[in-house]
Write a protein that binds this DNA or RNA. Structure first.
Lengths: 211, 211, 211, 211
DNA sequence: TATGAATGAGGTTTCATTCAT
DNA sequence: GATGAATGAAACCTCATTCAT
C-alpha cells in the first residue's frame, strides 16, 4: 500500500476504500489512517478535516471514472441504434462492477444518494449530465417526431433505470444471489440484454403512437 | 405531535421520520426522543434498544405500504399481461412518491441499500420476495418456453429497475428537475409508460429467440 | 415460586438468590422483581429501597442459618476433643455447600467480605461470635495451660481457616476441579480430615511447648 | 500523584487502588481517571477499554507480588520440611498484609473471588497454580506412599486455607480485633505457627494411616 | 395495595479534532 | 513535515427511583 506514494496520496487511496464501503459517517479517521499506514493526525494535518478529505476522494473518483469506461467506448465502425444503447449500458455496468479504483465513483454515488452532501450538485453537473445527454440523443434518434418530450424523458429513464439499479441493489444481490460481483462475460451479456429489451421498448412506444 | 398518541406510538412515528431521513446509524436516540417529546430513556424503556425500535419502525412501514398500495391493487376484471405490469409499477411508484407515512417503507429501504443493517435479510425475505415472485409469474407468462432462466431474471430486473430507480434517484431529480414529488396523474402516466415499454421489451426478447 | 407466598415474601426469596449470586451492586431490582413475578416498583413499594431489601434478606439468612446446621449438631454421647472439631467443621461445611436456602448466609457473607456494608457489624456480633466462642472452648481444652492467648487465637484461626476457605475459594474450585458442589459424603470426609489434621496440629503445638 | 509518571502509568496506579477497593464492576472509569489526574477518555485511549486496563493492573500486581515475596523466598541452606511450609506461609502472609503496592495482588484476588471476571481463569493458571504445585511437592514429601491423592489435596487445602483465610477475613479482623494490619514480627510468628501446626497435622495423617 | 410508565443520573465507549514536540 | 498523546462532545445503554392512577 505504501510504495513510493506520499502520505497524502496513501490517505486518499485508503479513504476511497473506506468511504465507498461505509459511507461518510461510518468511515472513521482511525480506520483510514491505519489502512494508509499513517498517523491518526495525518488526515487533519493534510486535509484540514474529514469533510475535506471526502471532497478530495470525490475529486479523484471523478477523474478516474471520466477516463476509464467512456460511454461511447465500444461502438463499432458504423453503429446502429442498439449499439449505442449497448455501449452506454456496458460502460455503466463496468463502472458499477469494477473491482479496481474505477468502481469508486459508483460506490460513492450510491452513498451520496441516500445521504447527499454538498458535493452532489457538482457531481451531477460534471459527471452525470454528459452521459445523460448522450442517451438523450440516442432516444431522440430512435423515436420519430410527434413524441412528447415527457415521453422521451421516460424512455431515457427506462434505460438508465435498468442500468443504474444494479448500483443500488447491491445488498439485495448479496442476499438473493449471494454475490455482488459480475464477470466480464456476465456484464456483456447483461448489457446486451438491456440493449435488446430497450430496443423493444422504444419500438413499442413508437408503434403505439403511430400504429 | 403528541395529541392522544401514547409515548410508544409517538416514538415510532418520530423514529420513522428520523430513520428515513438519516438512516439507522446517523439517527440518534436523542433526536428521536426530542421529536417525540419523550425522555431520552424512553426508547430503551419501550423497545429495549435502538435496534428493536428500528425493527418496530420497519414493521409498521411494511404494514402501511402493503395495505395502502398492494402490488395487485389496480387489476381490472380480466387482466391482460400489460395490466399486471402496470399494477406492479403503479404500486411501487405510489409507495415511492407517497408523501404520507405510506412512503416510509421506500425511504427506509433506500437507506438500507446504502448502509445495510441486519434488518435487511428479514426485509428482503418478508417484503421484497413476494412482489418479486408476483413479477416472476408475469414474466413467465409473457415468454414462451425455451427462454433461459437467466434471461427471465434479466427481464424481471429490467422492469424492477425502471420502477425502483425512482427511489434511488431522488436527490438527482431534485437537482435536474427541481422537484422530488409526482402528482397522482404523473404517477399513473409513468406506470403506464413502464408497462408499455416493458411489454415492448418482452416481445422483443421473445422475437429474437423465436423469430 | 409464587404459591401462597405474598409478594413481599417472594421478593425476599428472589432477592436472596440474586444477591447471593451477584452481590449487592450487580444485583438489579429488575432481575429480582422478574424472578419474584412482581412489578418493578414492588421493591421500592414494600421495602423503601434496594438497601432495605438487602437488610431484609440478611435477616432471613441469619434466621435460617441459626436453626439449620448448629455447630454442636452432630456430637456423640460422650464426645472426645476430635468430635467437637468434627462437629464444628461439619456444620460450617454444610452451611457452605448447602444448595438450599440454608446456604444463603455463607454466600452473602462471602459477598460482604469483599464489599462490606453496614450490615456486617451486626452479623459478626450475632452470628459469628457464638461459633467462635464454641471453638475457643474446644481449643482451650486441647491445650494445657502456659500456652499464650495469642497462640490459642492462632490455633482457632488455623481451624476456622481450613473450614471457611471453602467459602471463599468457590470460583477457584470451579476453575480447578470444575464443580463447586460437594456430596454429603464428601462433606463428611472433609470434615473428618479437618478434625484429624487439626488434632495433629494441636498436639504438635502442645508438644513443642512441653516436650 | 503525578510526579514524573506518564499518564498511562498513573492510570495503572490509580486503577489498582480503585479495583482493589471496589472490584472490577463497582470501580468506575471516572473515579480512576480523576485519581490519575487524567481525562476520562484516557483509559480508552491507552488501554482500549476498562477490561484491558484491568488486565494491565493484574499483570502489574502479579509481577510485584512474585518479585517482592517469592514463595521460596526465605528457605535456609538445607531446608527441612517445616522450612518449606514456613516459607510458603510467610510469603502468602506478606503479600496479604503488605501495605505497599505489593499487596495489590491479594486485594484483587479477594475481589475476584466474590465477583469473578474472565480474568480469573488466566490468573489461576499463571499465578496460583505454580505456588500450589510448590506446596504439592512439599506435602508429597511429607507423606509416605499409600496416602490417597484425595487426602493429599485435603492436606494442601488445610495449609492454604490457614494462610489465605487472612485475606478474606480482613473486614472481620477489623470488627473483632480492631485492626487489619500485622507487624513484620506478627507475620513471622503467624507463619511459624502455621508451619508448626501443619507439620503436626501432616504427621497425624501419616500416623493414622500407618500407625 | 399495587402497578405500568416514565425519568435523571451516571456508566462505558467512540471519535474528530487539537496540541506540544 | 509529522506524530503520539490527549481531550471534549456526544453516542448508546443501565438502573434505582418516582409518579399518576
Amino acid at each position: 500500500m505504501s510504495g513510493k506514494l506520499t502520505t497524502k496520496e496513501r490517505l486518499i487511496h485508503a479513504a476511497g476504500e473506506v468511504f465507498a464501503e461505509k459511507g461518510f459517517r461510518d468511515a472513521t479517521i482511525a480506520e483510514i489512517s491505519e489502512k494508509a499506514e499513517a498517523n491518526i493526525a495525518a488526515v487533519n494535518y493534510h486535509f484540514g478535516d474529514k469533510e475535506k478529505l471526502y471532497d478530495a476522494v470525490w475529486h479523484r473518483a471523478f477523474d478516474l471514472a471520466s477516463t476509464a469506461y467512456p460511454i461511447d467506448g465500444c461502438l463499432p465502425e458504423n453503429p446502429i441504434l442498439e449499439d449505442y444503447i449497448f455501449s452506454y449500458a456496458n460502460a455503466i455496468l463496468h463502472r458499477i462492477f469494477s473491482e479496481t479504483e474505477s468502481g469508486l465513483f459508483a460506490k460513492l454515488l450510491h452513498q451520496e444518494m441516500s445521504n447527499p452532501t454538498l458535493a452532489l450538485d457538482h457531481i451531477a453537473e460534471e459527471a452525470l449530465m454528459p452521459q445523460t445527454r448522450f442517451l438523450g440523443k440516442v432516444v431522440h434518434l430512435a423515436l420519430e417526431q410527434h413524441i412528447s418530450e415527457e415521453r422521451i424523458r421516460l424512455c431515457m429513464h427506462s434505460i438508465i433505470g435498468q442500468c443504474a439499479f444494479f448500483n443500488f441493489s447491491r445488498p439485495l444481490r448479496k442476499h438473493v444471489i449471494g454475490k455482488t460481483t459480475m464477470t466480464e462475460n456476465e456484464i456483456e451479456q447483461t448489457a446486451r440484454h438491456i440493449a435488446e429489451f430497450s430496443m423493444g421498448g422504444l419500438k413499442e412506444i413508437q408503434r403505439i403512437k403511430h400504429p
